[in-house]
Simulated scan of single mutants.
Amino acid sequence: MTSRAPRIAAWLAFLLPASLLGGALISQYVFGLYPCEMCYWQRWPHWAALALGGIAVLSVRRVQGLGVAMAALAAVAIAISGLIGGFHAGVEYGWWEGLTRCATAAPVGGTTDDVLNSIMSNPLVRCDTAPWSLFGISLAGYNFLLSLAGAGAIYVLLRRRKTGTIAA
């Protein structure tokens, strides 16, 4: 009897980044929590993981080796986003200084007046200030916790053998 663990891992590798990206986009476009530069850094690995997880879901039943490999790569991308989130959370909590101070969504181009007006009309978002927190944990902190836990769960699921036990 073959284990369902690779299929579960593939679905987790797809649904976790989809959920985290969905939450980030909802918080941005519905609740007005504009992302800073480091928030964008966290999104890029999740976009990659979403694509890899999608391939894993589509291929795990047909070509199980490909599905497992894609889920494993998605887990790595998810973990990378989590580590970036951990670094960002440390910047927000004042544990260390970040690589950047602030970001704006102002487009570059046009006349000097156009650029200046665009900068002034767009929100300035600081990377060292958490715009929202729950139980003292910022969004970057939740990304850290959920991403590393999810990547670990995918890894454990992929280590299962045909009998359903965890390989040594």
Rank of each mutant, 00 (worst) to 15 (best):
A49C: 07
P107K: 08
V156F: 13
V57A: 12
V115L: 15
L158Q: 07
I26R: 09
A69E: 02
T129H: 13
A49T: 00
I166Q: 08
L124E: 13
G152L: 08
A168G: 12
S133M: 05
L139C: 02
I26C: 03
A140M: 09
P131L: 06
F144H: 06
G23W: 11
A72L: 08
R43W: 07
W95A: 13
Y142V: 04
P131H: 06
L157E: 04
V30G: 01
R101F: 08
E97G: 13
A75K: 00
A13E: 06
I166H: 09
L12K: 07
W96I: 08
C36I: 05
L99I: 11
N117I: 00
M70A: 15
A74I: 02
Y29R: 08
G90K: 03
G90V: 11
F14L: 15
A106M: 12
M38V: 15
C36V: 04
L52E: 05
E37R: 14
G23L: 13
L20P: 09
G109V: 00
C36E: 07
M120T: 11
W95K: 05
G22K: 13
W132F: 14
F135H: 12
A49F: 02
V108Q: 12
T112S: 13
A153Q: 00
A56Q: 03
I84A: 12
